[in-house]
Design a protein around this nucleic acid. Structure first.
Lengths: 233, 233
DNA sequence: TCTTGTCTGTTTGTCGGACAAGCCACTACG
DNA sequence: CGTAGTGGCTTGTCCGACAAACAGACAAGA
C-alpha cells in the first residue's frame, strides 16, 4: 500500500490557489500590479508556463485584469470583474441545465421585490435609464433598450441600501440577460412590447415616488413574471 | 490611423471562447472526452501551450473536468461542476466586494426565511445534522458543531425545491462561515450557547413537521438574528 | 489456458528557450 | 526646447524536451 493517499494536484493549480489566497488576504492589494510573470515564476520556483496557467485561472475568476486585449501591461489585482465572472459562471450553470431558469427568475423576483420595499428614493441614474429606454423605443433599438433596462434594475437594486442584495441581483441579472435579449429579439410586435415594458418601469418609479413601496414591489413582481411566464407575447 | 479599432484578443482566450461555445452547443457532448491537447492544437492551428491555457479557463468555469489530480486522463466535458464554479465565483466576489457583514446576514435571513416557507418536508439529512450537533454539544467540539450547523441550513435550503435559492443560500453561508466560527470560539460560556442553538434548530424542524411554515420561518429569522446582532452573549 | 510481469506508446504536467509585438523611458539630434 | 529614434522590458505564442502515469500489447511461466 502506498503511504501517499493524497492525490497530487498539479503545480499550476496549487500556484493559482496560493495566488488567490494572497490576493484575498491582501498580500497583493487591490488596484496594484502583480509582479511580472518571470518574477512570479522565480518566487514560486516554477516555470513561466506554470505561472501563466495559474494566471488564466485567476483571470477566469475575475480576480486579476488582463487577457482581454493583447498588451504588455502587467496584470492588475482588481475586484471589479468578480461580479461579471460570477454572472458568467452562473450563466454557464444555467445554460448547462444545472440550475433551472424558472428557479433563477423566481429568486430574482423575490430579491427585487424585497429591494424595492427597502428603497426610499429612486436614484437619478435609474430615471435617466427610463429616458434612454424611451428613446430606444422610438428607434426600435432593442439592444440599447435592453442595456438601459438592465441598468435600471441594477441601479434600483443598489438603491435599497443593502449591498449584498444589490450585488446578487446584479449577478442574477447578468446571468438572465442573455435570455431576455433573445426573447426580445424573437418578439414579433416589438414596439408594443417595448412600450408596455417602459410603462411598467415608469409605474414602478411612480409608486416609489409617492412612497407606496408595496405597490412598487407588486409592480416589479408583475413586471418580471409578465415577461418570463410562458404565453407572454 | 489604423483600421483595426478592435483590440486584438489573445489567441488563448479566443480558443477558450470557441471551445466553450462548442461545449455549450453540443459539439462536444457532456460526459465525453475532449480530444488530446495535441489534436486540439492541430485542429485550432495553435500551439499546445495556448490550448493548455484555454483548458485552464474552461476548468475554472467548471465546464471540463481534470486538473485536480495529476494523471494522463483526458479532460472530460462535464456539467456537474458548473454550479460549484459559480458558487466559488460568487463567494469570491462577495469576499472581495467589501460588503458589510450585516448586509450579508440580512440577505441570508431573507432567503432562508423564504426557503423555509416553501419547504414541505424536512429532509433526513437535515435531521441527522441535528444528531451530530447534539453529540458535538456533549463534547464541546465547536468545529464539528459548526460543520453540522452549516450542513443543516444548506440541506434545509435545498429542500425548498428552488435550486437557485438553495444555491445562493449555500454561497452566503460559506461567506459568513468564517465569522460564525470565530464568534463561537470567542464565546465564554460555550456550552450554553451551543445548547440554545441546538434547541433553536430543533424548534425549526418541529414547526415544519407540523406544517407551520410561517412559524418555522420566524424561528429561522430569530435564530440568525439572535446570533449576529450585537450584544448577544 | 490463464495469470503475471514487462515493455512500449500515449498523454499530461512541467520546464527552458526562443521570437514577435507593443510599451516606456531615455537619449541624441535638429 | 522639441522630436524622432533606440533599446530594454513584458506579454503572447510557439517549439522541443523530459518525467510520471496510464493503457494495452506481449511474452514467460504455472
Amino acid at each position: 500500500m502506498t503511504i501517499s493517499p493524497v492525490s497530487r494536484v498539479p503545480l499550476s493549480l496549487e500556484v493559482a490557489q496560493r495566488l488567490r489566497a494572497a490576493i484575498l488576504d491582501g498580500t497583493f492589494p487591490a488596484d496594484t500590479e502583480l509582479p511580472t510573470e518571470t518574477e512570479l515564476a522565480q518566487s514560486f520556483g516554477v516555470g513561466r508556463s506554470t505561472i501563466r496557467e495559474a494566471l488564466r485561472v485567476l483571470q477566469a475568476h475575475g480576480l486579476i485584469s488582463g487577457a482581454d486585449t493583447v498588451s504588455t501591461a502587467r496584470p492588475r489585482v482588481t475586484h471589479e470583474r468578480t461580479a461579471g465572472a460570477a454572472g458568467l459562471a452562473l450563466s454557464t450553470a444555467l445554460q448547462v441545465g444545472a440550475i433551472p431558469l424558472a428557479d433563477l427568475v423566481a429568486l430574482r423576483t423575490l430579491l427585487e421585490a424585497e429591494a424595492i420595499r427597502q428603497t426610499t428614493s429612486v436614484p437619478e441614474a435609474a430615471r435617466s435609464c427610463l429616458v434612454t429606454m424611451a428613446a430606444a423605443v422610438e428607434n426600435g433599438d432593442i439592444h440599447t433598450f435592453h442595456a438601459a433596462d438592465v441598468d435600471f434594475h441594477v441601479q434600483l437594486a443598489y438603491a435599497c441600501g443593502n449591498q449584498a442584495l444589490g450585488f446578487v441581483i446584479g449577478v442574477l441579472r447578468d446571468c438572465i440577460a442573455g435570455y431576455l435579449l433573445d426573447a426580445l429579439a424573437a418578439v414579433a410586435d416589438r414596439r408594443t412590447v417595448l412600450v408596455r415594458l417602459l410603462a411598467e418601469h415608469q409605474s414602478i418609479v411612480d409608486a416609489l415616488d409617492v412612497g407606496e413601496n408595496d405597490r412598487a414591489a407588486e409592480a416589479v413582481v408583475a413586471h418580471i413574471r409578465g415577461f418570463y411566464e410562458p404565453g407572454t407575447p
